[in-house]
Design a binder for these strands. Structure first.
Length: 638
RNA sequence: GCUGAUGUGGCUCAAUUGGCAGAGCAGCUGAUUUGUAAUCAGCAGGUUAACGGUUCAAGUCCGUUCAUCAGCUCCA
């Protein structure tokens, strides 16, 4: 007999070889029905998996990540089955579950149109009605290859050939359809009650642009119709938050054909940017950073020396001055190196922290451009920390803390990644190993969960990245901490140690916002345009009831402006309701309606953006309230 | 860069099978003087992304380029 420890801590004994599903069934038939996959000793497994030794088992439902995963993976098989029924000539590539649904990459001689997608969706519905059960079976490598070759599934054949020697090769079948798949899958197609094919895109086989472009169909399925409706509503909501749309509506920035990827910031957008930058400066000064500015255009020799010429050239813009070649900076570091070298340094100066809000230009592929999130010119909130090797861990931790402090102000959650040595890199493996280990140690010391992103480091060193999420659930890299042993060598940087000898410093390159532009885009979506008071371009809109109250309104505005509150008066000859609506749609945090009562010395009628509530408040109390909200960078208006 | 889609006043969108480019909002002018999410009237605004082609006639069909969107690739 074996013992199985369940999630609630209860322990059950069974014959060895019992399956996950049988365990679920033993507990209750209802649970068995809702069990989509299992987590056996921490590993995601199929419900058909048999258990042969003492184990811990978690039964996963749709509410669990692993359960969703199995459900959607089966969705992708259903999609493939439907396509195969309609177009038997199709060649299937891969069809995984993703965070929100699934996709299948297919190679087919017809161009999939929205009409065809509808047809496929209908076919999927029909197949579900057949109530097919899924079966798992294993084949030897030779048998598997023979099977897929017979079917003409060239992509599957390639997948099998690339599987490791000892891999178990499993297939899942449902009715006439079967697919190479590691699983897990759900038991039966009937729980799929709602199906939606969402979008269509091209995707290279193996993600390599040298390979054939396949057609990728994205879809999602749910056990309940209402869940699909909710999901579609969520997508609509997310679209409303799109920073490109809000940027236009709130008059923050614009993009023009004349400068693809080069955003134009309007007066209101510049206010927000400036607030972000002021906040940044304040937080950095407080932590001993100094600020520098380095030029945008620098001689090519510098870029050759820094390694950018060899490792970053395809992303750089060039120009010529007096017959010499110059480059427009894609990064701030080489300029920072030159500043460091302008004088000698003692170990007593270290760590030396030099920040720079530097405008960099990078040639991004035109298909990659995306609003403010992905541009060709952006301001990095850069800083270089020059330090002794034994200061590394402490300084990395300080940067992690700084990032956390800054993200907290906005109420962001984030994910952390550790990126290791890329192919196109400089420096020895030993140095890379030391640097990567230092970053890992810092993360572990802070107890931060992180994911390894192999081969994604900068060409000069490994990095820790902070990823923030946008309204559509896409994540964007913002902060980054990069450890660099190369630039100090290349630029022959040194400091005089306590021993009176020259030593090599180590550098941390780091950003918190990453790019002011991207961060701006993310906060627009994060707040849905409803900025907290400290960031709002107009903090108070004063709306006089009639012309007779204009002077009084302007007096109040002057009082508020005098203490630094961004105040406007809407003197347009429109009805009150119209101007309130306008201020509301501009997402102005506070509105003051002033008329006879206020002019006669009464309290002010304050309307709050989020609640629409109106309350009376004296001018003095209002000043106090607003000042407090602004200084504390409060996320609420109340 | 690749695959697919899209491109009409500042914005959102109309315009049968090719047949006089139109509306709402925003803007301007006037009337109205308003108490918490849209007052009324008038005016103005377009080489239909650009260039080329087919046609008696092109927003509409064809070609090229550009930009945008969804992905891929890449990345802050």
């Amino acid at each position: 007999m074996i013992t199985i420890t369940l999630k609630d801590g209860s322990i059950k004994t069974y014959e060895p070889g019992i399956t996950v599903l049988e365990v679920a069934n033993d507990i209750s038939t209802g649970l068995a029905k809702n069990t989509l996959a299992g987590e056996l000793n921490g590993k995601l497994v199929d419900v058909r998996q048999s258990i042969t030794e003492d184990s811990t088992l978690n039964l996963l439902k749709f509410e669990d990540e692993g359960g969703k995963h199995a459900f959607w993976h089966t969705g992708s098989h259903l999609l493939a089955q439907a396509i195969k029924r309609l177009y038997p000539q199709v060649k299937l590539a891969i069809g995984p579950a993703i965070d929100n649904g699934f996709y299948y990459d297919i190679d087919i001689d017809v161009i999939i149109t929205p009409e065809i997608m509808e047809k496929i969706e209908k076919e999927m519905g029909k197949i579900v009605k057949e109530g097919l059960a899924l079966n798992r079976y294993e084949l030897s490598r030779d048998e598997a290859l023979a099977k897929v070759n017979k079917e003409g599934e060239i992509y599957k054949a390639e997948l099998i050939e690339n599987l490791p020697e000892d891999a178990i090769i499993s297939f899942y079948s449902q009715g006439e359809f079967s697919d190479l798949c590691a699983g897990p899958h759900i038991q039966n197609l009937s729980p799929i009650k709602a199906i939606k094919l969402l979008s269509l895109a091209g995707a290279y086989w193996h993600g390599d642009e040298k390979n054939k472009m396949l057609q990728r169909i994205y879809g999602i399925t749910f056990p309940k119709k209402s869940q699909l409706e909710e999901y579609l509503t969520l997508l609509e909501e997310a679209k409303k938050r799109d920073h490109r749309k809000l940027g236009k509506e709130l008059d923050l920035f614009s993009l023009h054909e004349e400068g693809p990827g080069f955003p134009f910031f309007h007066p209101k957008g510049v206010i927000v940017r400036n607030e972000l930058e002021n906040f940044w400066r304040q937080e950095h000064q407080r932590r001993g950073y100094q600020e520098i500015k380095t030029p945008t255009i620098l001689n090519s020799d510098l870029w050759k020396r820094s390694g950018h010429w060899d490792h970053y050239k395809e992303n750089m813009y060039f120009t010529e001055i007096d017959e010499s070649e110059y480059a427009i900076k894609p990064m701030n570091c080489p300029g920072g190196m030159l500043v460091y070298k302008t004088k000698g340094h003692s170990y007593r100066d270290l760590p030396l922290k030099m920040g720079e809000l530097g405008l960099v230009h990078r040639h991004e592929l035109h298909g990659a451009l995306h609003g403010l999130m992905r541009v060709r010119a952006f301001t990095q909130d850069d800083a270089h920390i020059f330090m002794t090797p034994d200061q590394i861990e402490e300084e990395v931790i300080k940067v992690i803390d700084l990032a956390d402090d800054i993200y907290k102000i906005f109420g962001f959650s984030y994910k952390v990644e550790l990126s290791t040595k890329p192919e196109n890199s400089i420096g020895s493996d030993e140095v890379w190993e030391t640097a990567t280990e230092a970053l890992r140690k810092a993360l572990e010391k802070k107890g931060i969960d992180y994911r390894i992103n192999p081969g994604d480091g900068a060409f000069y060193g490994p990095k820790i990245d902070f990823h923030l999420e946008d309204s559509l659930g896409r994540t964007w890299q913002c902060g980054t901490i990069q450890l660099d042993f190369q630039m100090p060598e290349l630029f022959d940087l040194n400091y005089i140690g306590p021993d009176g000898e020259k030593h090599r410093p180590v550098i941390i390159h780091r950003t918190i916002f990453g790019s002011i532009e991207r961060f701006f885009g993310i906060i627009i979506e994060h707040f849905a345009g409803k900025f907290p008071v400290w960031l709002a371009p107009v903090q108070v809109m004063i709306i006089p009831v009639a012309d007779a109250h204009h002077d009084f309104a302007k007096d109040i505005a002057a009082e508020l402006s005098a203490i630094g509150i961004r105040t406007s008066v809407d003197t347009r000859d429109e009805k009150l309701g119209y101007r309130i609506r306008d201020a509301q749609m501009q997402k102005t945090p506070y509105m003051l309606v002033v008329g006879d009562k206020e002019a006669a010395g009464g309290d002010l009628a304050l309307r709050v953006r989020d609640s629409g509530d109106v309350s009376l408040i004296s001018l003095e109390d209002l000043k106090k309230k607003l000042t407090e909200k602004i200084i504390t960078k409060s996320l609420t208006l109340d």
